[in-house]
Computed example of a mutant assay.
Amino acid sequence: MSASHNSITGDDLPVASASAGPSSFTSRKLRLIGGRVAFIIAILLLWHFASGNLVKTFYLPKPAAVLGELAGWINDGSLWSNIAATLIPAMQGFIIASILAIVLGYTLAMAKFAADVLEPFIAALYGIPIIALVPLLILWLGIGDELSVGIAALAAFFLMFYNVYFGLREVSQTLIDQVLIAGGSKWDIALRVRLPSALIWVVAGTKLALPHSVVGVVVAEFLTGNKGVGFMLSSNANHFNAAGTFAAVAVLAAISFILDRVIFYLTKRALMWKEAGKHN
């Protein structure tokens, strides 16, 4: 995997030019929102027309039927409890993976020989499909939340590791030399130069790794769970309930969207500082 492929889109790094006024920025934002709403409406209309006309409703239910399933889950409270059952182990696995990735990524970025020795083995481990490791994880962790956390951590680790590792290696040596000349210590280099400079890579890794940790939990729930969005998905699919299956997929899409927006707004100021520094 090449971490250079993991980049933040232009929409996620909104740095307005000096000539752009508030009114033009607001106008563009409104047009952007309008375009996205129009796209969603077009998809729903096409979906509504295709269901029952081009594709049997057994395979492609009407949007109204999917909304009915969602409304039923909201009314009985099962939606929120299952979302929590998925998100909690996903966040736990992501935190574990992030800590390990930062520690290992920093260590190998500072030890080039060790990195050269271990790189092919790390790449080989990354190439193993997660689903192939599930039986082994079941043997080690059992069936339950521990399995979900383990798969989530495994799904997120390599994405975070590669971004941390390559981000730290891309730090300007000139900047490091300037801090050393000014009397900076190794801790100053680590905390005030390397990590802030690699922040955009870390955020890129987070935007990829956090949704993958959710995917990892869903895989565990799909195979062995009795709760969570993955269980809702497998249960409805096993009962040939297309509307419920589509509703569970819609919930996963909504979770991914919300997580992406939360990460964006939490890191917006830091990313704007990083991007602004490129133009100075």
Rank of each mutant, 00 (worst) to 15 (best):
I122P: 02
F158C: 06
W273C: 00
V203Y: 02
V249C: 12
E170C: 00
K186Q: 14
L137Q: 02
W80N: 07
F161N: 08
L199R: 07
T26N: 05
V55T: 05
A114R: 01
L32M: 08
W201N: 15
F121S: 15
A247L: 03
V229I: 15
A247Q: 07
P135T: 04
L233I: 09
I181E: 09
G127F: 03
G225W: 06
G230N: 05
G21A: 02
L180D: 04
A3T: 03
A109M: 04
G277W: 04
V217M: 11
A243M: 04
A220I: 05
F94E: 05
G167H: 07
N280G: 06
A71G: 15
R169F: 01
E69I: 12
G144F: 04
N280C: 00
A153H: 06
H239N: 15
I74Y: 09
I83K: 08
I122T: 03
L13K: 11
W140K: 09
I200T: 13
G68A: 14
D260F: 12
D116K: 12
K62P: 00
R192N: 13
T9I: 03
S185A: 04
E146I: 00
T86R: 10
H48A: 15
L159N: 13
K56R: 12
R192H: 13
T57E: 15
T57I: 10
A242T: 10
W201Q: 10
A155K: 06
A156I: 09
G10V: 02
V66K: 10
A101W: 11
V214T: 10
I200F: 05
L210N: 02
V214K: 09
K62A: 14
W140R: 09
L266M: 12
E146D: 13
